[in-house]
Every structure is written in C-alpha cells, then in structure tokens.
Amino acid sequence: MALFGSKSILGIDLGTSGIKIVELSRIGGGRFDLKNYGVLDFIPKDKSVPKLDDQILISGLKDLLNKGKFLTKDTTASISSFLTFTTIIEMPYLSEKDLGKAIPFEARKYIPIPLQEVVLDWSIINVKQAGDHTNVEVFLAAVPKDQTERYKNIFISAGLNLKALELENIALSRALRGDNISPLAIVNLGGRSTSITVFDDQFERISRNYEVGGFEVAKALSETLGVSFEEAEKIKKTEGLKSGSSGFAIISPLIDLIILEAKKVVSNYEENKKVRINKIILAGGQANMPGLRNYFAEKMGKETLLGDPFKNVSYNKVLEPVLTTLKSSLSVAVGLAMRKI
C-alpha cells in the first residue's frame, strides 16, 4: 500500500538509529539483483535517546549517497510503524466507489486524530459470506499529514526522487514472507522500539509497538556494568545472550518483556481467529544479537527464524560475510526496493 504516488530503485529505511539504503533491480521470476547498499549508524554520545533533527537526516543521506555512488535517485521510503495508525474493519460489501465514500465515516471511529489531518489509505483484504449477505474486511492505514510532508521534504532536500512512501510493516512482509500465506509473526527489533506484527494470508492482521529496543539494552548494560555506551554496544553485539556472558542477566529481563508482549499478541490472534501461528521471524538491527534466536524460540515455544531478506536476491558472494551480519537490519530497505512502482 503506497501512501502517495527503472531499472533500479533505492529502498531507504530512515530510522532513529541509522539510515539503511538498498539498491535493487528486478531480473524477473520474482528475483532481484543487488546493485548497492549503504548503512549509516547514529551512535548516541550519552545515555539518552538520540534526537535527530531533519538537517542531520538530510546531511546523513547526502553523505551516504555520495560515498555509495548509487546508480539511481528513484526512491521508495518507509514510514515508521510508531508514526502510523492501522486497523482492520469489517463492512457490508459495496462497490469500490461506495466503499470509498463510506470508509471515511467508519475510519473516524478508529483513527484518534481528525481525518483532515491524516493521509488515509485502505485496501480490501478479504471477502466473506455472512449469512445471506457479503462482508469485506478492509485494512485501514492513516499517517499524519505533517509526517508525510516532513518525509517528502527530507528526501527532496537530499536530492532524491521520492516515488512512494510505504508502511514499514508492509515492506518487512514483502522482504521476509515471500509467497508464504500461512499465519506467522514478525518481530522487528529496532533501535528505539520493537514492533510485533501478525500476518495471515499475506496481509497484516494485528500490530503492536513496544517501547523497548536496542538502545534500552545498551543503556542497561552501560549503567549496570559501569562502562561507556560504546563499550556497552560492543558487549551487546559480541556477547549478547550467550550463556555465561557478562550481560546475560542484564539483557534477558528486557528481552523477556518483548517476549511477553509477543506472546500476548500471538495468543490473542490465535484465540480470536481459531488458527495456529507456528513460526516467528526475527528482523531488525538487534535480531543478530548472539543467542537471541535460540532464547526467543525457547521462551515462545515456536519455531523462530532469523529473517533473510536476500533469499530472492542475487549478489556477489564476496559480500556473504558482510550481508550475513547486516541482512536483518536491511530487511525494511530490501522490501522497499522490491516494491513495484
């Protein structure tokens, strides 16, 4: 779902902890060729969440683009999940024209800010019989207009040709799910927060954001062990949740909070829809933390995989060691670059 509307396209994930760019070209048969990629991390100088003004983001984009020598300026970018309002509503079947008129009235019940202040988009995701009449399930998405304008200004100022803004979770699904239509959950562990999203029959069904991410983990390590924030980041990335690691007792309670939320989201969906979710996919910059996948699988009691956004992407095998480390953090950017525009 695009919120507005080459041979290659840039997918740009503009986050609070960094900028990720992936350039892909479509080679047919559902496969892509990796042309280029770039990553710029924003390292906090203290133990407070980094506040990035637009000029820092524009400057960071320009720097990354100049150093990366990308082949195109055509861009699809993501809107972060914590800036969006999404829900699924069920309505009697109408023509698309009549649905378009009716949905804004229904949306007022679910969107917590005035509709004139948001960009509203919708898609029919299911049609089902309800007795002697037909109902449709409609996925609603709303993003504050001031945020869409802000994003457009950032990318234009960086010299890019913004083709579309897309919801972060949709890009994640495209990169990680492929043609899998069975119910599964994607846990996206970012720098600032974690999103837990259930997908069923290729559509987002429920999503929750939890305000614990990689920053909180590093902050806890720094304060408890009495080390610098930079040293805490190293411990998180090299030791993580390995058994016997110096940070295990510090990190595990924070991960347990995320797992508790994931269990709630998954079990609620299973109970309400009478289905079974058997697979969890981990994504995001924190997903590569040593020991995390096994810890998550044990606590969730479900098959847990590290998401691989490059499974349908061809690339020079010389890059294998680097991409193995980066692939989880590049999931959103890859999904954006895969989008048809």
Rank of each mutant, 00 (worst) to 15 (best):
L3H: 10
F4K: 14
G5K: 14
S8E: 04
I12M: 09
T16S: 14
I19E: 02
K20F: 10
V22D: 07
S25N: 03
G29S: 00
N36T: 04
V39N: 05
L40A: 14
L52E: 11
Q55T: 11
L57M: 15
G60V: 08
D63H: 05
L65M: 10
K69Y: 14
L71T: 09
L71A: 07
K73T: 10
A77T: 05
I79K: 05
S80I: 03
E90C: 11
M91D: 06
E96Y: 13
L99R: 12
K101M: 08
F105A: 03
A107Q: 11
A107F: 09
I113H: 05
I113D: 11
P114I: 09
E117G: 04
S123L: 15
N126A: 14
A130C: 07
H133T: 12
T134K: 15
N135H: 04
V138R: 10
E149Q: 13
K152I: 07
S157K: 12
L160T: 11
N161S: 12
N161Y: 02
N161L: 06
L162E: 02
K163H: 01
K163E: 01
A164Q: 02
A171P: 00
N180V: 13
I181N: 03
S182E: 13
S182I: 13
P183Q: 15
L184D: 09
N188R: 06
G191K: 15
F199R: 11
D201R: 15
Q202T: 08
I206V: 14
I206M: 09
Y210H: 15
A220P: 00
L221N: 05
L225F: 01
V227G: 04
E230W: 04
E230C: 06
E230S: 14
E233W: 06
K236H: 08
K236P: 12
S245G: 00
I255S: 02
A262N: 13
K263V: 05
S267W: 07
K273N: 11
N278L: 15
G284E: 02
Q286V: 14
M289S: 01
P290V: 07
Y295H: 04
F296L: 04
E298F: 07
M300I: 10
L305W: 10
L305Q: 11
D308P: 00
D308N: 13
D308M: 03
T324C: 00
A333I: 05
